[in-house]
Design a protein around this nucleic acid. Sequence first.
DNA 1: GTCTATAGGCCGATAGAC
DNA 2: GTCTATCGGCCTATAGAC
Lengths: 201, 201
Amino acid sequence: MMKHQDLSTEDKILLAASKVFTEKGYAGTKTRDIAEEAGINLALLNYYFRSKEKLFEQIMKVKVVLLFGQILPLFNNKNTTLEEKIDLVSEKYFEILAKNPNLPLFVISEIQKKTSEITSVLPVKGILKDSVIMEQIKERQPDLNPFHFLLNFLSMTIFPFVVKPVFSQFNIMTDPEFKKFVEERRTLIPHWIKVLLDHPK
Amino acid sequence: MMKHQDLSTEDKILLAASKVFTEKGYAGTKTRDIAEEAGINLALLNYYFRSKEKLFEQIMKVKVVLLFGQILPLFNNKNTTLEEKIDLVSEKYFEILAKNPNLPLFVISEIQKKTSEITSVLPVKGILKDSVIMEQIKERQPDLNPFHFLLNFLSMTIFPFVVKPVFSQFNIMTDPEFKKFVEERRTLIPHWIKVLLDHPK
DNA sequence: GTCTATAGGCCGATAGAC
DNA sequence: GTCTATCGGCCTATAGAC
């Protein structure tokens, strides 16, 4: 296991920035917070990354790729059936989100607040439109915009992690209860989605 | 129609604060932004609300009640069936969210970032636990934590509004397309939820 | 590369005139 | 109630010594 002390100064800052930005958002983060969390001198942050803004962009890029980068290729695989895609995407997302529970809320809320240049990094629209999974859904339910299904799937999977802070604030679930709850959904969601696919309106 | 000029200074500030806080979040908002948006002098903000913090708390309380206040009573009505509840809650939520599309993301992300005292205002946990809807779901599918269903329902309904900024950023949907998409879901979601209720694992 | 010290600007809040 | 002017503090960023 790599200790914090073994990291380079640059990586210490990146690690700390990832944590603090995710907790407090861009506007709520002070460069002093990051420096303290990283255990480095404040001036080093500007020495390595020039500005808070540039540091943030670098973190954001990593987060967007983490949230979408591994999933989009699964959507576009011609060698898997729709059912297999559902299982694979579900597995992959639970793996990512179990390790990064506040990833979706961070990315979504920062995209809403700031104008960024991530669009160029990941051409989500181009990949999604006319993707294999969209065609496969359309075969099953030709009368419906296939995006409804995709969004149902992603809603059920991602939304619990998005509202997790609300659960905590209102004491609806403890952390271990949430973990168990999410673990149950890991197999339930693929089941539900397949049921929906077989029952058009 | 009430014009902006007809509002009292206090209401002008509240209206402007609601808009700016929702767009930029608490940390990203400057009191000068609010004053400018309201068309009033900066000093008046402190005259009426004492501090940015106190003004925010007042806005936040309104938003939380708007997001949960009208829905929770529907969950606890003994005189409606589960099917009727699904239809009623769906109707009510689409009405609220069509008018306030960025309400959920604002409330969720600010709850994550700040510690507030809203818990005391709205005892969500007490209302939800042992609520009528939870019992009704449990009757249908006794082997499953009923909260899964409630969350599926809320996920499908609310999540599209939460990810709306992502749609915009990546050009996945235009605003009119989104409006049409959401309008379709208004009747689709109750259908899907009922299908899921009738198909236990 | 890493430190201390500080510039320079912005932000929340208030004093005090009207 | 509303304005102008300004304070005091904090925040990002950098200059310059080591």
